[in-house]
Each structure stands twice: as C-alpha cells, then as structure tokens.
Nucleic acid binder design. Structure first.
Lengths: 279, 279
DNA sequence: TCGGATTACGTGCACCGTAATGATC
DNA sequence: GATCATTACGGTGCACGTAATCCGA
C-alpha cells in the first residue's frame, strides 16, 4: 500500500520538472525527496525515472504513475471535502418559513432544544418550501396553511395577528380595530423581508404607497421617530419592545390573522422528538 | 492530506466492528489503532465515532467516511496494479508468427538486440496476427506473404525450405528432390505446433496419415530412432543437430519454399531501429 | 561557478508496544 | 472474569535536515 504523500510528491515532481523545485513547494529538502522517490519505486517495484548524472526525468511508467497520482489526490481531497460537508450538514437543521416571526421563533426554539446543532434558516414562498421539504433539502418548514400529504407530517405551530401602528394623533387612532380596506391608500413604512405579508399588502393595499426598508435598524428608527404608519404583529409585540406613544390597532380581516403550521417529512419526525413531543 | 493507512484502518474497523478485531487484522495493538483514529478525526475535523465507555461505533459521518475509504483503497490498488502491468508491458516485446522457425529466430534476435526486454511470443494464424498488429496488441509479426498497407511496415525477413527426412534404406532415399504429391499417402511423423505448415500438410497430403506429437523431445527421439518419415526445414538444419544416417530431400513445390516477412505498425518502426537498420 | 542530484551521517519525533485503568457484560 | 476501549509511559525506527560530493551547463 502506497501512502498518500508519495503520490503527492510524485505529482509535484511531474508538475515542477525538477526535484529541487518540487522539494521547495513541498517544504522538503532535495535529498529527502530524492530518497522518497527511490522508496516509491521500491514499493511499486517499478522504475519511474531515468536518472542522469545531475538530472532526473519521468519515464513512461513515471508519467502514467504521475497522472494516476493526480487522479487519486483529486479523489482524496474531494472525499475529505465531502465528509466534512456531510458532517456539517448532519449537525445543522435547515428550516424555512413563509413568515419572518415564525422563522425567528422556530430558530430560537430549535437552538434551545438542540444546543449542539447549527440552524440554517431561510425565508421563501410556500411552494418552494414544500418542494424543499419533500426532496429533503430542508428538514422543517413553517407555512400558513395545513398540508395534508401522506409523506408529510403537519402540526399547528403558532398564531399571529397583524396590527397597524399609528401615531396617537392620527385620524385612525380613535378606532379600536380596522380592516385592510380601511387603510388602502395610506402611505406605509414596510420592511422588505416579510415573506407572505408582502403578498398580502400587494393584494389588499393596491392603492397604498410602501416605503420599503431593507435594514431592520433603519426601519425601527424611522418607525419610532416618524409619524408613518407601519405594521407589527402579535408575535413582535410579545418579543420586541415597541414605542409607547403609538396606538396598536388589530386588523381583523381573516387573512391578517394567521395560523402557522410546521411541516416535515414523516420519516424525519423522530429526529425532532423534542419539537414534536408525543409524536 | 490524509495518509492511506488511515483510510485502511477506518475501512477495517467498519468491516470488523470493533477496534480490537480490526487491530489484530492490521497487525496493530488496540491502543495504536485507537490513537490513530483519534488522529484521523483530528485531521478531518470530523467526529467519526460515537464512543461509549467500552464500545466504539461509527456514526453517520464515520459510515460515509468508511465507504469512501473503501472506494479510495480500491482505486489505489487498481492504480498500483495498472502501473505495474504497464511497466511490464513497456519492457516486453510481443511478437507472433505463423511459422515456428521464424518465431524462434526472431525471439533469439530480439533477445540479443534488446537484452533488457522480455519477449512474449506466440504462434498463430496470419489473419489474427495482422489484426493484433493493427490494434497494437502485438508489436511484431512474421507472416509468409508481404503485406501492403499504409499503416503497416513490411520487410523481407528470411527464407525457409521444406525437407523430407527419410531413412537411408527408404524407397525414396535415392531421389535428389521431390514434390509434395510424391509423398501423399505416406505415414508421416509430425509435430503439432508448426503453424501454417500444418495447413500445407492437410491440403497437399490428404491421403497421408500423421503421427502427431505434442512434445518436442518425444518427437525428436521418435524421429531419431524410428524409420518414420518426417519433415525438417533449412532453418532447422542450420540451427539444430540432425541425425547423419538419414537422407534430406528438398521439397521443391513453390508452397514449400517460404519467404517470411516481418510486419509492424509504421509508427512503431523507430522503436525497433536495431531490427530494421536504416529505416 | 552555479544549480541539480545523490550519498553520508546524526538527530528528533511520531508512532508503536507494554502496562495500567476504567467500564460493561 | 472476560472483553473492549482509553490513558500513560518508555523505546525505536524512520524520515528528515545538514553537509559533503559529483556532475554538467
């Protein structure tokens, strides 16, 4: 059996042309490399070089061996990479959601339940989510509708209600609740990455203008300091601080009161025993 | 970079199930193997085992790694074998002939001209010979007809004349020469491996009975001691001793007086510079 | 004279084996 | 008690580097 470093040295010599150049690249001395190749020839029982007095060249067998060496080294490094990636994936839970709050909530929950695991999370539309869960690219997904599928496990996860935040002196501030149609036309501050909520806004507030913010901190500052209308949800009200000098008006449309369902392949349910107690 | 012996040890552990069993098969002690696998995990940066108090098992990453290890080891041993075979082939000249004398002659000549090379020789029909030369399986072939082909080099090699050997008191002994038809009907001692000569006998001596001999020594003893007719050739008369108390009658049919041609691929001519001087 | 290859020689460390320990059946 | 794995410790061989030599451009 030939150790890997022999193949690496041989490949390097083929690449560099001389022992000395190869030795330098390999952080070896010339004598060491010379000896090593002698040993390789002995182990193979095959002469790989034609040796002149002060030059050494690969012969035909050596050329073949060097080509093979390169292939083996490629396989070896690919293999190592594959093992590392597999191991990393094995200890990361990949999840997705169509809504940001549910995603944050689940990330937090999983991090607590499985302290050794990394959690990789992504916001995406529900069709893509379901496809990813089905083909195994994603282990868990949170969607806004229950899914009845013989391969998929589905469980109610949480509810979330939409609120409109208005300045206390705003004309809407006196209302106890409202419908989406009531605010269609108002200019609204909106975060960009809000998943399905964006579709909801586009659909029901077609006359409104949206001030889109990519950065969450900027959004928060603007929301705090300005008199723009913006949305929040029951989940955010529970988990984050909100300015006191605002009125929080529940939006009572059915579409604005969401029930989240968590989805995973039935064959993976056991893997998430802590998340699905009793299943 | 991971040395081969790590992969071998991992594969062996996967095969055997326990460290101790694997260690024994690898001619190692348990502690050595235990340390070695720790080191492998460190090099990979991946845990491969779940360690109980007195048992150790491959985890999922370890299973993958072990499978990969087997594949790499297979590639490695295939590669070594391939290099060895290539090297051996590189230093053997593979030749063939349709006739035995020309084959012996060429083997002897090549062994003299290329002392470092092995010569692999085979007797076979001319059609097969030409095919082998064309596809590279054979470097040189000796045939009884010139071959005109743009890919093939062809050179006259030697001539050979057939003789009938008869006891001095035989009814044919008085003749100075004869034709094949003159001996059709006689019982003749014949060696089995005589290439195209056999076809010639079958064709022109259809009424003769042949006493076929596989073993050359047996043939020689019988030829010497008995009064059976048998054949020899000009080449054999030159290169081997023949009994004095026999008459050697040349057979003057055209088919019994052979000119041999040596064939090789034009692209290989240079390789046999000593054999084809001036080409 | 310089660059490249091999040979000779001394050394350090990596890995091995032995022995001891812990743990489970 | 038997088996299996890990830890501790001491020894050895192997592969390395340094130095010297040889050779050719």
């Amino acid at each position: 059996m030939i150790e890997t470093h022999f193949w690496e040295q041989l490949a390097m010599i083929a690449q560099c042309g001389t022992l000395s150049a190869a030795a330098e690249k390999l952080y070896l001395t010339q004598p060491a490399l010379s000896r090593s190749m002698k040993k390789l020839e002995e182990l193979l029982g095959v002469e790989l070089f034609t040796r002149g007095k002060n030059k050494i060249t690969l012969n035909e067998s050596g050329e073949l061996a060097a080509k093979c060496a390169v292939r083996m080294l490629e396989l070896e490094s690919e293999t190592v990479e594959r093992i590392r990636i597999f191991d990393r994936m094995r200890r990361t839970i990949t999840i997705g959601s169509s809504g940001p709050s549910a995603l944050s909530d689940l990330v937090g929950l999983l991090s607590q339940l499985y302290p050794g695991m990394a959690v990789s999370s992504e916001l995406m539309d529900e069709e893509t989510l379901l496809r990813h869960v089905r083909d195994g690219a994603m282990q868990l997904a949170v969607v806004t509708h229950p899914e009845d599928d013989e391969d998929l496990f589905c469980m109610k996860y949480m509810e979330e209600a939409l609120y409109l935040v208005v300045p206390e002196n705003h004309e809407l501030a006196g209302l106890s609740h409202l419908y989406l149609k009531d605010i269609d036309g108002y200019t609204i501050l909106l975060h960009s990455n809000i998943g399905f909520w964006m579709d909801l806004c586009r659909e029901h507030l077609s006359h409104s203008r949206f001030l889109l913010q990519n950065d969450f901190e900027t959004f928060k500052e603007l929301a705090d300091a300005s008199d723009f209308l913006f949305f929040t949800t029951s989940w955010q009200l529970e988990h984050a601080s909100h300015p006191k000098n605002k009125k929080y008006l529940p939006i009572i449309d059915e579409e604005a009161n969401i029930t989240y369902y968590i989805i995973c392949r039935k064959k993976n349910v056991a893997q998430f025993g802590l998340l699905f107690p009793g299943q």
